[in-house]
Nucleic acid binder design. Sequence first.
DNA 1: TATCCGTGGAT
DNA 2: TATCCAAGGAT
Length: 362
Amino acid sequence: MVAVQPRTQYSGDIAKLLLAHYDRHVRALPWRSPPGTPPPDPYRVWLSEVMLQQTTVAAVFGYFEKFTKLWPDFAALAAADDADVMAAWAGLGYYSRARNLLKCARAVVAEHGGQLPKTSVELGKLPGIGPYTAAAIGAIAFGERAAVVDANVERVVARLFAVETPLPAAKPEIRAAVEAITPADRPGDFAQAMMDLGASLCSVRAPQCLLCPLQSHCAAHAAGIAEQLPQKLAKKAKPQRVGMAWWIEREGADGREIWLVRRPPHGMLGGMRALPDDGWKAREDGDSKPPFPADWRYLDGEVAHVFTHFSLSLRLAVTAAPVDESCLPDGEWWSLKRLDSAGLPTLFSKAAKLAIRARHQD
DNA sequence: TATCCGTGGAT
DNA sequence: TATCCAAGGAT
């Protein structure tokens, strides 16, 4: 293993070359300000960075637009209803981010006078802000020379210095290298340039080294092993689970209604509205037991859904409202006309489609 | 350190 | 179709 010890003049060259490339190829994004202009509103930097955690730029656009329109600053978001924020986040995934987003906004208002602290150390103490996000906000919004390390940067750096240690063991080594090449001038642009490079030319498969501004400095390219880096440990296979969801319907004042529950605040889809289900989880199939005895009609077909660590085959059973509503699990009647505004996570959104399709076939 | 936590696009 | 992967954080 070659120790990563970039020499200062080379480090400076890397930043200089990369920033020059960034100035010519920068993407205009709603949360980004052009190179050489004042940094964006820290609220927008924070919001975008949280949304972008493990999420593609394309998926974030619409949510960023919606959130900034509904809640333009920390004060507005801190004052929002939890249910509204969770519903607005529905479909974006990793729902603990939305819960922590609210916690963070309220902490900023209650403890920081409505403004983000300006150092990555202080930022990292807030809910939902880890090492990456703290460094990214510090660098992009406040010009701090912080080492911003995400999966893109790990890939670029692993190749630049031919780090052959597999991830995640290579993380400390890679972080040290990022600290060594991050410039004091324009650290925010440098971080975004590194991420852009990883998201474009320095891609996982078929990197376009021919067009890369850092090609002449890249040890992996010189050795002809760029595409093989970074190395990663093999992932475990996903278990396949089965579960049931219960579609309980009645005639309400404004047309048909279904019974929705609120999932517990932690765990899978925590805090989100949902259909009642039979308790399926990552390590266990559901128990198939209906919430109350009724004339359940089991629908044909299933909802196939893939989570990060398991796959679920969800089946659906339908019934009319029970005579005795006290047997319903905690929840609320929800008009089918405004089901879109319930903010169901994708799994249950798919299930609702299946149920509604089945109704129309009757 | 390892596991849990969504979703949709690319290949 | 199956697999991999993304601007990670919390526990």
